[in-house]
Design a protein around this nucleic acid. Structure first.
Lengths: 111, 111
DNA sequence: CGCTTTGGTAAGTCATTGCTAACCGTAAGT
DNA sequence: ACTTACGGTTAGCAATGACTTACCAAAGCG
């Protein structure tokens, strides 16, 4: 019933379309900043700022490689996301079936 | 590899903490506007505005009941969310194992 | 017919934020 | 040491957005 994970940060980070594009890009494999920026219609500093937000949210991690920094998607964060979705789904389903059962009970009583 | 669903609207809507609270409330069962607003630290008009966003995103639907409007979570939207998460997960997993296989191949060649 | 309840809408305010341009630091190559 | 490549940081700006107050519409009740 409660969802007080750090989902707040995750969802806030994924609310931005550019950051979602970055995440989806990284889902295809780790990548340095420049390569990410090359696929996006925004400047490289903008990507850097987005990566900071994603990093703070725990969605990505960086590994220095010379002057480059290789960013990687963090599986744990995706797992948390899925868990939140699943929780929503199960609660909604339970509420729905509970209501259905309630209606059924009323109808039985009427009958 | 592509995620061109209407996930954009969904994620944007869920990026706001107040809207997430509304969604989580509705996961417990359908509810009129006033009841939702009573559980939140914001005014009722604010909730109305959030519900409009959620409705536009396809996350909720409203059913008039006298002067009240009963809002309900839309299962399809949650399913889309879960599908997006699962897609991310699978792509990331595939990219990871592909890299692992690549490394293994290299090591085999070396050997 | 008023009166109350419920809730959507409009206008305005204030904070947030996504972006660019400019700058700086660092690692490798010549 | 000079230069190039890569990328994080800052300052500043324009746009978005979340919120409140005030107002309006519709349905039920005396």
């Amino acid at each position: 019933m409660t969802y007080q994970s750090d989902i707040s940060g995750l969802m806030a980070a994924l609310g931005d379309p550019t950051r979602r594009a970055i995440v989806e890009h990284l889902a295809g494999g780790a990548s340095p900043v420049g390569e990410i920026a090359a696929t996006l219609p925004v400047s490289r500093p903008a990507v850097s700022q987005h990566l900071k937000v994603l990093s703070d949210a725990g969605l990505v991690t960086a590994k220095p490689d010379g002057t480059r920094r290789i960013y990687t998607l963090r599986p744990d964060a995706i797992a948390d996301l899925r868990a939140w979705c699943d929780g929503l789904w199960e609660d909604a389903l339970q509420a729905f079936t509970a209501k259905a059962l309630h209606v059924a009970t009323i109808e039985k009583d009427v009958k």
